[in-house]
Nucleic acid binder design. Structure first.
Length: 429
RNA sequence: GUGGCCGUAGCUCAGCCCGGUAGAGCACUGGAUUGUGGCUCCAGUCGUCGCGGGUUCAAAUCCCGUCGGUCACCCCA
């Protein structure tokens, strides 16, 4: 093989695309039902947009971005969607047009990580952003919307984890508390966490290392050090979720990889279809300072992103119904030409038709029928020399194993009749 | 980025330890059925054994490197 897809980037072939479309369709339905409208932003943005919004010291910015220079411009293929949405929101002065804005998006993102199951260098996200409302109602509604979406997708073991990072001042303050707490116990930390103590102390909270867990003993949780306003926001969110009956678990150690989050933070997890620790299907949170930070007016906001590939792993979709298919099997070149005409006529009536053009050459009827059966076709129309001469066509119900000879002018009527019948299990009688 | 495991037919894999002419099932094609599919039976097609180098009379098999996948770590969707 001379050429292959770039490492960590995948082709999605039609067989698999059925599941993708199902997921995307469900997402769109749910998002639109909640008042969100689709936004599409460029896949390439200025590098600075990401470094400023995501944070200079994050893993994404430090080592995972696909950045390049072109005509003197520093550009990056987007590693996530929020930065672009915020940029577009600010650039088009959306805040002057409406007080509250709800956008959704879907598309590919790029991060140069080492690929593994459910983690790729080109991966796809579904996301929502809500601008202009600071209330905890938004948080509750968004989390409930996600819960509803996952229920529709049949992901039953969904776990919703929430936390609050407080306002802009809380994080540095808590960070200091962690450092003060751990510095005297530094010697007992894991190697990774000793390094993190100076680079990203908050990350130590989700360490699974026994030594770190022991060293963290006695540290107040971030929720305990929230300001009163932040605390009230979080408490309101919890009671609103309780009222909705939306299940969630508070985990004060939940920290996410992006710098712009404030207050509410959430993550969605499932064990289904997963191997090992890679169980996060998506997550999000508030970013009340980001819009202003990116040069816009002070605008509270909240959003989330879901990993399509991961949801697809967790989603157990039995059999997705597809529209009934009709295969036309012509025998001989003359019949093939006639079949071409017939196929168009059927399609004009909204029927999905696959014309087996091989029948125009030397392929046997048997081969075409076998193929029609393998494709899961509902009906096969056989058009041979005899039918051509008598202006008729064999209408074969593949499921019922029955066949009738119908006149051309009756075909549409009879065909629609068969297609409307529920699929009968053949051979039961 | 670090470490483990894997890479053989279109797909799933056996063969590798112990070097000696590359296999199975599924799929595909044809036949049993001159124009009738799901089951059955018969036959057939399909391979740079991931790639490159080394050892050897001889390498899918042993050694080194490399690429890809996967798992753990890291991190995250």
């Amino acid at each position: 093989m001379n050429y292959r897809a770039v490492k960590g980037m995948n082709d999605i072939l039609p067989d698999e695309m059925v599941r993708w479309h199902h997921l995307e369709r469900e997402f769109r339905v749910v998002a639109e039902r909640h008042g969100y409208g689709e936004v599409r932003t460029p896949i390439i943005e200025s590098t600075a947009l990401f470094t400023r919004s995501i944070g200079e010291a994050t893993d994404i910015v430090e080592k995972e971005m696909y950045s390049f220079e072109r005509h003197g411009e520093a550009l990056t293929v987007r590693p996530e969607g929020t930065a672009s949405a915020v940029r577009a929101y600010v650039e088009h002065h959306i805040h002057q047009k409406e007080p509250v804005t709800r956008w959704y998006y879907l598309g590919p993102m790029f991060r140069g990580e080492r690929p593994a199951r459910g983690r790729y260098r080109q991966f796809h996200q579904l996301g929502c952003e809500l601008f202009g409302d600071a209330g905890s109602v938004c948080d509750a509604e968004m989390i409930d919307m996600l819960h509803g979406l996952f229920m529709r997708l049949g992901i039953s073991d969904l776990e919703i984890v929430i936390n609050s990072l407080g306002g802009a001042d809380t994080r540095p303050r808590y960070r200091q508390i962690i450092v003060d707490h751990l510095e005297p116990r530094k010697a007992r930390l894991s190697e990774d966490s000793i390094r993190r103590l100076s680079s990203n102390p908050l990350r130590i909270l989700d360490s699974k290392d026994e030594r770190d867990i022991a060293a963290l003993e006695g540290l107040p949780s971030i929720i305990e050090v929230l300001t009163q306003d932040d605390r009230e926001h979080f408490d309101r969110l919890c009671s609103q979720l309780d009222r909705l009956g939306t299940p969630y678990r508070v985990d004060p150690t939940l920290v996410r990889g992006l710098d712009y989050y404030t207050r509410t933070l959430f993550e969605l997890r499932s064990q289904a279809g997963q191997v090992g620790a890679q169980n996060a299907l998506g997550g999000g949170g508030r970013y009340d300072n980001l819009v202003q930070q990116m040069g816009g007016p002070s605008t509270p906001a909240i959003g989330f992103a879901l990993g399509v590939e991961r949801i697809l792993l967790a989603m157990d979709v039995a059999e997705l119904a597809s529209p009934p298919l009709v295969v036309i099997a012509p025998i001989g070149p003359q019949a093939a030409s006639e079949a071409l005409l017939m196929a168009r006529e059927l399609r004009d009536h909204g029927i999905c038709v696959e014309l087996d053009g091989r029948g125009g050459a030397s392929t046997s009827l048997k081969a075409m029928l076998r193929r029609a059966n393998a494709r899961g076709a509902r009906v096969c129309l056989v058009l041979g020399q005899e039918e051509l001469e008598s202006q008729k066509v064999q209408l074969k119900d593949l499921a019922a194993r029955s066949q009738v000879l119908v006149a051309r002018e009756e075909l549409m009527h009879r065909l629609l009749d068969v297609l409307q019948q529920p699929m009968m299990t053949g051979g039961a009688a």
